[in-house]
Each structure stands twice: as structure tokens, then as C-alpha cells.
Design a protein around this nucleic acid. Structure first.
Lengths: 115, 115
DNA sequence: TCAGTATATAGGCATATGCTTATATGCGCA
DNA sequence: TGCGCATATAAGCATATGCCTATATACTGA
């Protein structure tokens, strides 16, 4: 049996730095329950599309989230293969559910679902 | 019975931002096991004293760590009363022990102990 | 193929961050 | 009181960050 390698301080710090932004942390808390695409985040955060895109890119670049294209949309989700996944999850579980954002989205008819 | 208030996203993000720096994260991981003072961190990180002092100050300012003066020295420790204490602890427990830094310190005769 | 929608990239700007050196403050002890 | 060590603060500088607007790319469906 091979012990799971502990996360290095360096990698953890990199992940935590990304989580240390309110917008990204909220995105992650949402992603802990629901996959989302960029255009949904644009609605939720009422922020420019490039700004959202850049936040998402940073998290994708270090492997914290992953993407899957569904036609026109690219759905993002937490990446369970990320080295810091356990850490990310344990932090997110301490934070309040962000379902109200999704509900608002649904009420506005802006929720994207790919099944 | 009163349920423990969940940490807000805002406060968590603030704490995570501070943890997202390699130097501070290492300090915190050390503090999880041992109280330390500024001059010890200066030795450990081989960094200027003001630089260390500023890192410590940021963490003290949001209540993440606390200080206790022992004569000439001010010993810092994790603050169990910090709102994000549980989060901090759960992250630190996923990181490798940093005892080698303390051992080096002891070998150099620079370890401060206040008992 | 072309219009419409979704996403990414480039460039610019204001502010935040982390480090440094210089200096001030606080405490212990002769 | 005055020196020595520990710590804090001030000021300056280079780089990082987060946002924006403008523009490019990618996919869908008529």
C-alpha cells in the first residue's frame, strides 16, 4: 500500500491563493454542487465576460477545475484528480451553500443544462 | 442548541488569501505544532525582519494568529478563537510537518523557548 | 456560408502585494 | 539612565492582480 503523497506547501499555496479571491471562491462553492459555464457566471456575478473567463482560466491552468464542451457551451466542474482536491473540498464544505445564485439563474431562464 | 454559524465567503476568502502565500503558509504550518517568535521566523526564512514582521502582522490583524509577550520576545500562536480556525486547521493538517525548520533552529542554538 | 451566441485573448490601467532599507519603539539588564 | 536585542512602522520600488474594452476564435443552426 502506497501512502498518498502529502500536498507540498508550494502547491497548496498556489491553490489557496486562487481560492483567496471572493469571486473565485464563490464560483468554486457553486461548482461543488453544480457544473456551470462561463455565461452563467457572467450572469451570477454581474461581471464582464472576459473577467469571468480569466478567473476560470486561472483555476483551469493549475488543474483545480476541468472543462467539458457541450456544443456551444463549455461546462466547468471541480477536478477530482487535482492534487489539492481534498483540500479544496474540505474548505468548500465549511462554506455556505450558494444555491440562491442558481435559483436566480433559473428564474431568469438563464440556467444552462446539458444532460 | 445553536448551530455554529457557517463562515462567510468573504471572511473565508480573506483568510485563504493570507494562506495563499508560501511564506505565511509555512509559518502557519509551523505554528500548528509550535509557538514561534518573529526572530525565529527571520532565521528560518532567511528574510529581513521587517518582511517577517509584516507577514505576521497581516495574520494577526484578521485574528488568525495571536501574540503573547514573554519579556523580550513576542510568541505567536494559532488563534483557536478565530472564526476560520477550523478551516485553517483542516488545511494545515493536509500539509507536511515542518519540524525540520525547528530542528535546524535548535542546532543553531536559535530556538527560543518560554516555559 | 453567414448571423448569433459563447468563450478566449490582448492591451491598458489602477490598486495590491511583497520585498527592501532606514528608523522608531519596547523591554531587560547592567 | 543607557546599551543591546526584539519588534514595529515608514517609505520606496518592482511585480502581480483584477478589472475593463476591443477583438479574435469556435460552435450552431438557418
Amino acid at each position: 500500500m502506497i501512502a498518498k503523497e502529502a500536498l507540498t506547501i508550494d502547491k497548496a499555496a498556489m491553490a489557496l491563493k486562487l481560492m483567496g479571491d471572493k469571486t473565485r471562491l464563490t464560483m468554486l462553492r457553486i461548482l461543488a454542487d453544480h457544473d456551470c459555464c462561463v455565461c452563467e457566471f457572467v450572469e451570477i456575478f454581474n461581471m464582464s465576460q472576459p473577467s469571468i473567463s480569466q478567473h476560470v482560466r486561472k483555476m483551469k491552468d493549475i488543474g483545480m477545475i476541468k472543462e467539458k464542451r457541450h456544443g456551444q457551451w463549455i461546462m466547468f466542474s471541480l477536478n477530482e484528480d487535482f492534487e489539492g482536491y481534498e483540500m479544496v473540498k474540505s474548505v468548500l464544505h465549511l462554506l455556505p451553500v450558494q444555491d440562491h445564485h442558481l435559483e436566480e439563474l433559473i428564474q431568469k431562464g438563464k440556467r444552462i443544462s446539458c444532460d
